[in-house]
């Protein structure tokens, strides 16, 4: 903004060391273009932006009447708005998978069969009143106003005698609800669901394969590594634009022993025109 107000006559761009380099466009051999642009951010620091772009030309033939209508000026509530969809009125929904099939009903039935199973399971469950153990909801209990809930009464009694060991630790001696993290022995449990147990197991039997040829395919890698044991996952890093392999891959085994064997055998193995380097994957931090 400030630059635009400058008079061109006292423009000292050529001497200014903070001046931004011009935009650079280079064509890559794989048909993509790399555009490097510079700008200043809020802190007046130079920011380099590198974009890799693939341009594809898509030709579309349109009826001349349709093409003419596309040029119509907007009117009514849209009057004066620029061309292109307005985000306040137009949005794109979630992807819907719509595949017509003759056995559509059958596949739908399976789903409802699962529902049925769940419903049957729940049917077996009887409603039990917490006050009198009768087969009605606690709120409907005829003794609601005269009796205390059974287990609560028991807990209260135990607390009185100092026996400890609450039967139901979700309610305190006064019948108030206790949040899970405030209950007895909650210290050990707190946040235990956040542990990365699965992650650890994965990493133990995962090999990192480097120096992989650009032409590599996941299926080839899988075939090679499957010789040493059951492979649960093969991940080959690929370039988003060109679709070619980036030169490294991860192979996970079900068993760590298999992974160790594969690591030993495959390290130094020739694949394509390169020699693979295989090692155990290090945990990314």
């Amino acid at each position: 903004m400030a630059d635009q107000k400058h008079n061109w006559a006292d423009d000292d761009e050529f001497d200014d060391p903070s001046a931004l380099p011009p935009q650079q466009i280079t064509s890559n051999p794989d048909g993509t273009k790399t555009i490097v642009t510079w700008r200043l951010n809020e802190d007046n620091k130079k920011v380099k932006t590198t974009r890799k772009i693939r341009t594809t030309i898509k030709k579309e033939y349109v009826d001349p009447r349709v093409a003419e209508r596309r040029e119509w000026a907007k009117f009514g509530n849209e009057k004066g708005h620029p061309a292109g969809p307005d985000l306040t009125t137009t949005s794109v929904g979630e992807n819907i998978i719509f595949k017509p099939s003759t056995n559509w009903k059958a596949t739908q039935k399976e789903e409802s069969a699962e529902d049925q199973a769940l419903r049957e399971k729940l049917l077996q469950k009887k409603v039990a009143c917490r006050i009198c153990k009768g087969d009605h909801f606690t709120a409907r209990c005829p003794f609601k106003d005269t009796l205390q809930p059974l287990d609560e009464a028991g807990a209260a009694a135990e607390a009185d005698t100092g026996a400890g060991g609450a039967v139901d630790d979700s309610v305190d001696a006064n019948g108030r609800y206790i949040a899970p993290h405030m209950r007895k022995g909650a210290g050990a449990r707190a946040g235990d669901s956040m542990g990365g147990g699965k992650q650890e197991r994965d990493d133990l039997a995962t090999l990192r394969v480097t120096n992989v040829s650009e032409m590599a395919e996941e299926a080839d890698l899988r075939a090679m590594f499957e010789r040493y044991g059951r492979v649960t996952r093969v991940f080959l890093a690929k370039d988003r634009d060109t679709g070619r392999a980036k030169g490294f891959a991860f192979v996970s085994y079900q068993d760590r022993a298999d992974a160790a064997k594969a690591c030993e055998k495959m390290d130094g193995h020739g694949y394509g025109h390169l020699i693979l380097r295989v090692e155990f994957a290090k945990r990314s931090q």
Binding site: F75, G76, E78, G84, T90, S91
Partner: peptide
């Protein structure tokens, strides 16, 4: 009380009739 006209290809609103 409004009629809307839309371009079906991209969902752009052409205008409204009042």
């Amino acid at each position: 009380h409004v009629v809307c006209a839309w371009f079906s290809a991209n969902g752009e609103r052409l205008g409204t009739y009042h």
